[in-house]
Amino acid sequence: MIRVQTKDFDVGRELSSLTEHNVSIGGIVTFVGTVRGNAEGNDVGAMTLEHYPGMTHKELEKIENTARERWNLAGSLIIHRHGRLKPGDRIVLVITASAHRRDAFEACEFLVDWLKTKAPFWKLEETSDGTRWVASRATDDAASSRWTE
């Protein structure tokens, strides 16, 4: 399931609604990404996430479908926020549920790695030195490409 929204999410409530009444589940993995309060030595006052509405949902759906083909998942959820966020705010939620833990762990890490390099979002940071667009990281590309090796 994919949701792209400006509003915050409640991790506990999302986890319950994804997994309740499904007794085949033996393990649930949850990843929450949050806004860091500093970047390259500068304090970050806020961050604005821009996205490409038409493409974002499709791209996240593709990533989720890939995970569900590769791992045995009983449930999955990706929520990605956009708009202006403050340090400490939640940005992204990824939940994977499976009968046995390894599928859930691996699929969750895969989803986070892939959405960072494929989902069309861009971060604009507001720092004491002004605003700057966050550059993509080679380490994220490496983390993403290891799943295709």
């Binding site: 490409y52 990605h80 959405l115 960072k116 494929k118 979002f121 971060k123 993509s136």
Partner: peptide, 12 residues
């Protein structure tokens, strides 16, 4: 066609 141009993505 709809053609979109953007920088490398930085979500997550």
């Amino acid at each position: 066609d709809e053609v979109a141009f953007f920088p490398p993505v930085t979500g997550g």
